[in-house]
Amino acid sequence: MSVFIDITGLPQERIAFGISPLAELAAALHALSEPAHHPRLHGWTTSISATFKAELAERLHEADFLWRAARADFLLPAVPRGTLAEELDDLDQMDDERYVAAALEISCASRYCEGVPSPLVDAAARGRALDLAAARGPRQAAFVQRMLDDPPAVRAWIRRLLEECDEVFFSDTWRRARVQLAADARHKTELLRHKGLAEALQAASPALTVEEDGLRTRIVVDKLGAGRTTAAGSSLTLLPTAFGWPHLMALYTPGWQPVVQYPVAAGEPAGAASVDTVRLRLEAVAHPMRMRLCRHLARGTYTTGELADANGITAPEVSRHLAVLRKAGLLTTRRRGRYVLHQLDVSVVARLGSDFLEGMLR
């Protein structure tokens, strides 16, 4: 299972490595909302979170579905700018239907690669967005309802939130990170010019390869998920991130210019377990369907119904697979009202091996 980006006939000059403050802010916000995904950033996430006033922390929690389990597409600019303000200005030019559709993908359980219509114009998409939001709790359900009722007001609210994050912590963070990111983008650009796309992509991430099939050429993004898009007739943008590991983000929504965000550094989760425990856990995750479920559960909390819908199986089948994962000690479960939410225990999974964890979170 991979994401395929068709680049047949795409001139090399339409493939660009660049840096984006908005994309990096989104990566930083994800790390703050899911610190277990980013053990190497523990000191940074702890110190930054401690500086947040209660009101800012509450608003970040309210909007974190934009960057927590999945990344809203508009947070990965296809045309990077020099400043966050410029990228936010570009974002303001997007029409409401496109913006809201991207914002309300909610989670990896959405039908991302199908290019579903905007909830502003399609009743079924609206109902699905509200159902998914309800499973996240009353706060998010209310937020999504406001976005559907008054998109301009909520868009302005999100922009103010991102601007406040810039004032509180990100401007200083970006001043330091942009030096490393700019150097990485320059290096990959030089590799692209002098040694070709395949070598530049491999230098960016071993999960990026070029595949030629007869008359067609495509980039293969090795992720535990399936998707297809094309850069033919448009462009391809690759963005390094200092906060992203182990995630490799790929924007492949139909109708959007493809964007790939790759981490500039890697790390090794540490830990150990008994042989019997390792055996039990490896057997639990070896099943193909349970591996697919783990990919969702590694990124956030999901109900049984959401997992069934996303994977095309019945709720009882999901329950049986979850029972195996739970017996192996790989799941955490909590109740929120009438919903039971399941999530992969990333700290436990990390002890199975960094390759497996990175594959789940890529």
Results as ranks from 00 to 15, higher is better:
Ala23Ser: 15
Pro316Met: 08
Asp184Ser: 11
Ala31Ser: 15
Val144Arg: 09
Val349Thr: 15
Ile7Val: 15
Ala85Glu: 15
Met289Tyr: 11
Gly115Tyr: 06
Ala156Asn: 01
His342Val: 00
Pro39Glu: 11
Arg98Ser: 13
Thr230Pro: 00
Val121Met: 02
Arg362Pro: 00
Ala72Leu: 09
Leu162Gln: 09
Ala298Asp: 00
Arg193Ser: 14
Gly82Met: 08
Glu268Ser: 10
Asp213Tyr: 02
Arg351Ser: 04
Asp96Gln: 14
Pro254Trp: 13
Pro138Ser: 14
Ser347Glu: 15
Arg178Ala: 12
Leu60Asn: 04
Lys327Tyr: 04
Ala310Val: 10
Phe52Glu: 07
Ile106Trp: 03
Leu75His: 09
Arg68His: 15
Thr8Gln: 05
Gly312Thr: 08
Met289Gly: 12
Leu307Trp: 09
Gln257Ile: 11
Ala273His: 06
Gln343Trp: 00
Ala198Arg: 10
Tyr339Asp: 14
Leu161Ile: 04
Ser319Ile: 02
His247Asn: 12
Asp184Leu: 05
Leu341Gly: 08
Leu10Glu: 06
Leu104Cys: 14
Glu199Lys: 11
Thr189Cys: 02
Leu75Gln: 04
Asp166Phe: 02
Met289Leu: 15
His296Gly: 04
Ala102Met: 12
Arg335Ala: 10
Leu248Arg: 11
Val285Glu: 08
Val116Asp: 13
Ala129Cys: 04
Glu190Phe: 00
Leu322Arg: 04
Glu164Asn: 07
Ile313Phe: 07
Ala286Pro: 08
Arg59Lys: 15
Leu10Val: 11
Gly244Cys: 12
Val264Pro: 02
Thr332Ala: 14
Ala134Gln: 12
Asn311Glu: 15
Glu306Met: 12
Ala203Val: 03
Ala310Leu: 06
Ala273Cys: 10
Arg228Asn: 13
Val259Ser: 05
Gly9Asn: 11
Met94Arg: 13
Ile158Thr: 00
Pro206Trp: 01
Pro80Ala: 12
Leu251Trp: 01
Arg336Thr: 08
Glu62Leu: 13
Ile19Pro: 01
Leu191Tyr: 11
Ala133Gln: 07
Ser205Met: 05
Ala102Leu: 04
Arg292Gly: 05
Asp309Lys: 09
Ala133Cys: 06
Arg335Tyr: 00
Arg59Trp: 10
Ile7Cys: 06
Leu330Asp: 01
His61Met: 04
Val121Thr: 14
Glu190Gly: 03
Ala72Phe: 03
Val324Glu: 11
Trp44Glu: 05
Val260Phe: 10
Gly115Val: 09
His247Leu: 12
Glu211His: 14
Thr277Ala: 13
Leu148Ile: 11
Leu161Ala: 12
Pro80Tyr: 02
Ile15Met: 13
Ala153Thr: 12
Ala273Pro: 00
Ala72Gln: 01
Ala109Lys: 03
Cys165Tyr: 03
Arg295Ala: 13
Trp44Gln: 02
Ala123Lys: 10
Ile15Gln: 03
Ala286Met: 06
Cys165Pro: 00
Arg290Trp: 04
Glu58Gly: 04
Pro138His: 07
Val318Cys: 12
Pro35Phe: 11
Leu191Gly: 07
Pro152Phe: 02
Gln93Met: 07
Ala134Gly: 12
Arg59Met: 00
Leu192Ala: 09
Arg218Pro: 01
Pro206Arg: 13
Lys53Asn: 10
Glu34Tyr: 09
Phe65Glu: 02
Gly255Phe: 05
Ala200Trp: 03
Ala109Tyr: 00
Glu199Asn: 09
Glu190Met: 08
Ile106Val: 13
Ile219Leu: 11
Tyr99Leu: 15
Arg218His: 07
Leu181Asn: 00
Gln145Leu: 06
Asp150Leu: 03
Cys294Gln: 04
Val221Phe: 08
